[in-house]
Nucleic acid binder design. Structure first.
Lengths: 209, 209
DNA sequence: TTAAGTAATGAACAATGATTCACATCTTTG
DNA sequence: CAAAGATGTGAATCATTGTTCATTACTTAA
């Protein structure tokens, strides 16, 4: 035997691996998943195209990994808020607000994570991502119901609705991110938070219209 | 001069034009826009591929026209409800419910119209489509505010939120359309309607959390 | 140093599917 | 019927990118 994996080689391999992911992430943040081309990523990372395939079996897997990494942090942030020990309405408001602020800070990335279609692999990850949000929100709502802060309701559906409302209002095709000033942004965030809190706190029973 | 367009030829042309659109629409309803291939459409319409290009300059234009046609009807349906002379909450509830029912009836088509990414042309149409919904909903909400049925609020943002909530809860990646029975569907629709009415009727001011 | 194995390279390849175009066919008018 | 123009045809072309692979360059252990 002659060559064997050693600390040095492993470290190098890992470094390159991360470098590729990092370059790809920047590309996604700048132009979405669609803007990621294997050749561009390779070039930006100072590698040959073929080298990427030493680290990722396919473009889809690379993108999925990028998605996973970025996404993990986002869910962590929201989970941290959910696990606070404040009152449910307060936590729900905070969670919504944080989502909003982060989305507005990196709109392209937010769009990519929430909407942009890529391929089956990433779509599967996105499913999990969105569900994570819904789960976290659902926990807060359930807490609120238990404590009497919110009326009984279909938590699962409501959580989905909130995720959708956030996505659409902030990132969706309708969101006109171009002309909003700082204070306009604040007003909008406020409106969205109010919308969500109202929706969850409302007194009306289903048939009450 | 020899050949000139006549009633007969015009009729024929139009017939073929519609035939193409019809075949394409069916394809979209069955497999989404991604499932539409020029060669398939041609074959299904009993034409040669090249013939399609006598009627539409490009695939994108064909799809955009399909989108426009399908979409037009959907907006008409919702507009009809909005223009009813009932109370605002009742109209809002009806609008939401109708959206939900139609979406659940043709899930693939609904997904294609609301989410599925295609190309710039169709995306532009989708923008207009979603905005139409928001505008119609916004009108109802404004009516409600004027009549005192709803508190004052940021109508534009709220309308977007509702569109998003509907899209996500009914069509989005989170929606698990597979196992729902008839009555489960009814429960879900009920929950969504309640969510939206609560969100719009809520008493809380923005800072009240 | 050498043998053995791993990593890097990047030009060539493959697959997909929209689009074109030279030609044939059909319609109309005189 | 002939001429002129429009419409239909479908195999060939084009364009785009992800993926492969023969070759070269490293790295390690003996």
């Amino acid at each position: 035997m002659a060559y064997r994996e050693t600390k040095k080689t492993r470290k190098h391999k890992e470094r390159v691996h991360n470098q590729i992911l990092s370059v790809a992430r920047v590309a996604v943040a700048e132009g979405g998943f669609a803007a990621v081309q294997m050749s561009s990523v390779a070039a930006a990372a100072g590698l040959a195209t073929g080298t990427l395939y030493r680290h990722f079996p396919s473009k889809a897997e690379l993108l999925a990994e990028v998605f996973r990494r970025v996404t993990k942090r986002e869910v962590q942030v929201m989970t941290a808020i959910a696990d606070t020990d404040g009152a449910a309405p307060s936590r729900l408001g905070d969670a919504v607000e944080v989502f909003a602020r982060r989305a507005l800070q990196s709109p392209v990335l937010a769009y990519a994570l929430i909407f942009e279609p890529v391929d089956t692999l990433v779509d599967a990850e996105r499913l999990a991502f969105r569900r994570s949000y819904a789960v976290v929100l659902g926990r807060i709502i359930d807490d609120g119901i238990k404590s009497g802060a919110f009326p009984a309701q279909n938590t699962a559906v409501v959580a989905n609705c909130i995720v959708g409302a956030l996505a659409e209002a902030l990132i969706g095709p309708l969101a006109d991110r171009t002309l909003t000033t700082r204070s306009e942004t604040e007003v909008e965030i406020e409106a969205i938070v109010t919308f969500c809190l109202n929706a969850v706190s409302g007194q009306q029973k289903g048939t009450a219209r």
